[in-house]
Design a binder for these strands. Structure first.
Lengths: 232, 232
DNA sequence: GCATAACTGGATAGGGCAATCCGATTGCTA
DNA sequence: TAGCAATCGGATTGCCCTATCCAGTTATGC
């Protein structure tokens, strides 16, 4: 991707040895493939196998799955943030909004891993979360402007986009390769429901904190270990 | 639930011994709890632990997870079919339709296992699939009548309900206990998008067969074994 | 070239799960 | 109540996962 550069990590204490850097690249490439195919539930071991490196190498470079996820999806998160920026540039705020929603959901459909990333949060992955926040701030503007034109319903809440991503993830995960475009119909329906005038009131949005908790709960420490043995 | 009866299985070759029947009941009760809490990805072993029976007993009674799932959710599927029947009795077809959708999604939210069941299909679980089909036939009528009143958009397709369930499962799984009512807002939005007049055209529905494949793919043989080691 | 610190990956510990085996137990019937 | 067949459940096998350890290998600076 960017050969010659030490991995773009500000905390780069010291450059890796050339072979280490090469393996790091392999691991990330492999993770891109595996996460994209299997979602974030894919095991570290399977990524190591795909990369053709030892398990130890895997864990030495990325002690936690979160770090690997951050490394793999930071550039995709860039693209995501860019999509919001593009939408903000659209002279027609509603058109921009719709385009953004479709683009974001398309990214989810194209990469099962990213579909998971958009509905989870990774507190320790600063780079990733900063980008997410950046996109979020831009989205707030986008929403405000779309409401101002009267095309977006007044009671639309930013958290509705998170819910949309969760719903879309459900569709994408369930339909998979068997019906790869099914999500488009669901997203189109959702967008039509966002359009003003509202056809009726809506139940309240979830509390901001609650939704954040949900996004935390869903992160690798959650589903990866299916039952946190509270039962035992 | 129905004490004294041999488990309502038409193929009941011969009644189980009393202790076996007792254990069978325990297993089903435990599975109800565990599947409800953890979804269908819960392990057979965890169900056995919850039931307080040996693993062997578990597998002797339910050689495959599908059989256990069928035994556990057949009555919930009854309730589901009933909900459609109730909706059909409603003098206002649209009101009935909306009520049914909300009830069905509420069932998903109340039981993670059932949320999975509604987006999967289990070819070998006749009892379950018959009920599903029964509900489906009734739904076709319900949809037809709701369209006839002009309240349901013309291009609504029965498969949209499957997609809705997939989307709802995504929301319910992601939000979990942290935001237990978030799904209501999503479902309300979806319902508003179902309402006529349509605000615009929709992408085509997925092919019937493709959606069926998707529901097959998602069944226990799928996600339960996360990566079907095509990689190995 | 050579020394050495960095790096590698196989081995291993520790845990969970699906599935089967078999000696001990228990319900049932004559 | 006695005997048998059905049933029980712990032990076991085989597989995959996370995470760590360590002896062998290699890139790099001198």
């Amino acid at each position: 991707m960017n050969p010659g550069a030490q991995h773009s990590d500000d905390s780069a204490a010291q450059p890796l040895r050339s072979d280490a850097e090469r393996n790091r690249g392999r691991i990330i490439a492999a993770a891109r493939t595996v996460f994209g195919r299997d979602g974030l539930t894919a095991s570290m071991a399977s990524v190591a196998r795909e990369a053709g490196v030892g398990i130890a190498t895997m864990f030495r470079r990325f002690p936690t799955k979160e770090e690997l996820v951050a490394a793999v999806f930071s550039d995709r998160m860039d693209a995501y943030a860019d999509a919001v920026a593009v939408a903000l540039d659209d002279p027609d705020p509603w058109h921009g909004f719709v385009g953004y929603v479709e683009a974001a959901c398309a990214m989810q459909a194209a990469d099962y891993g990213f579909a998971d990333v958009l509905t989870m949060t990774f507190p320790t992955a600063k780079e990733l979360e900063e980008r997410r926040d950046e996109a979020y701030q831009a989205m707030l503007k986008l929403i405000k402007r779309a409401k101002a034109t009267g095309r977006l319903r007044e009671d639309f809440d930013p958290s509705d986009l998170v819910l949309l991503h969760m719903a879309n993830a459900g569709v994408v995960n369930a339909t998979g390769d068997a019906a790869p475009d099914a999500w488009r119909r669901v997203v189109a329906l959702m967008i039509q429901s966002f359009e003003a005038p509202a056809r009726g009131p809506l139940p309240d949005s979830p509390e901001h904190d609650a939704l954040y908790q949900a996004m935390l709960r869903a992160s690798p420490e959650g589903p990866t270990a299916p039952a946190p043995d509270k039962s035992g």
